[in-house]
Amino acid sequence: MRDRVRSLGYAAYERLLRWELSGTPSHVAVIQDGNRRYARERGVDANRGHSEGAETTEALLDWCDELGVDEVTLYAFSTENFDRPKDQREHIFDLVEQKLRTFADADRVHDAEVCIRAIGETDMLPERVQDAIDYAETRTAQYDRLNLNVALAYGGRAELLGAARDVAEAVDAGELTPADVDVDTVEERLYEGPTRDVDLIVRTGGDERTSNFLPWHANGNEAATFFCTPYWPEFRKIDFLRAIRTYENREESWRTTRARRALTLVRAVENAEVPQARRVLGRFRDALPSGEREAIDEEYEAAD
């Protein structure tokens, strides 16, 4: 009986969260943390935690497809993870190989038109994993409805350092001048994979840090972050919906701030013509609370 009540409460809360959402982020990046701690607290082998975490990853892709997310980047294996015991590394490599091949052949992946890419220093991975990457990328290369980037042997600093070295070599070879170096110059030399900036970073497991993950794509876009305590195998759909709600609240706050700055700027311009000011503010006023919108309207009506 208790389980049934809990299930009903969970379903009701999920419906409430869905009702509260008005949109979704375009690009979600996920740091899947806590697999080993999950296993340790349950007295089972760490490999069990990674296996159950892989099941959560499959569920996440279903949620993203259902909600209309365009791109997902998963932090599956960092460059620091090479320091883990060999048996743990091998189990993770086995899981990655298996999941890549399974996803590449799955009807739901093809029905959802998911394009799979790996980002990172993939030449550091075992040959069997590299073969699985090639297989998954080739099988899904024609799709673009949902982009799935799997970060393997990935480190954000290494990515930026590699791009910086490539730029320096191009300048040294006379292919570029320092004045030619801009945002596009750097982006062309990053790992091939993400097609847009990150809107939302989700990290499970209780730690509140982004661990060198997608610094160019996330920090440059001032991505929203959502940290939660459940370990990755425990992460549920309601946790994901709460993460998206955090993103929406941040976006609403950002739009309001931008609207207030625009209003201050217009008021500060001497002799600004009322019609011109209205045109500028018309682009931003809907982001303001109703009381502020009414005050603006009254202000410019009095100016007529």
Rank of each mutant, 00 (worst) to 15 (best):
D123V: 11
R108M: 10
V167C: 07
Y154S: 05
E192I: 03
N219K: 11
G193V: 03
T195N: 08
E234T: 07
D166S: 14
A151T: 05
G156I: 13
T185P: 05
W216M: 07
H110R: 13
A112T: 07
G156W: 05
R128I: 07
L152F: 03
A158Q: 14
R128S: 12
R196W: 01
A151I: 02
I201N: 00
E208R: 15
Y154G: 03
T204M: 02
Q142A: 04
L148E: 02
T229A: 15
N147I: 12
E137D: 11
P230G: 01
G193N: 05
I119V: 09
V198D: 00
F227P: 05
D180G: 09
L190V: 00
D197E: 11
L160R: 10
A179V: 12
M124S: 09
D172S: 14
H217T: 04
E175H: 02
D111Y: 01
A179M: 12
L160G: 06
A158G: 14
Y143F: 10
A168C: 08
D180T: 12
D182W: 09
A170K: 02
Q142L: 00
L148M: 03
H110V: 08
Y191A: 04
A106Y: 01
C228V: 10
N149K: 09
A153R: 02
E222F: 11
T140L: 08
R236K: 07
F227D: 05
G205A: 07
D180R: 14
E159G: 02
T210A: 07
T225V: 15
L190S: 00
L214A: 06
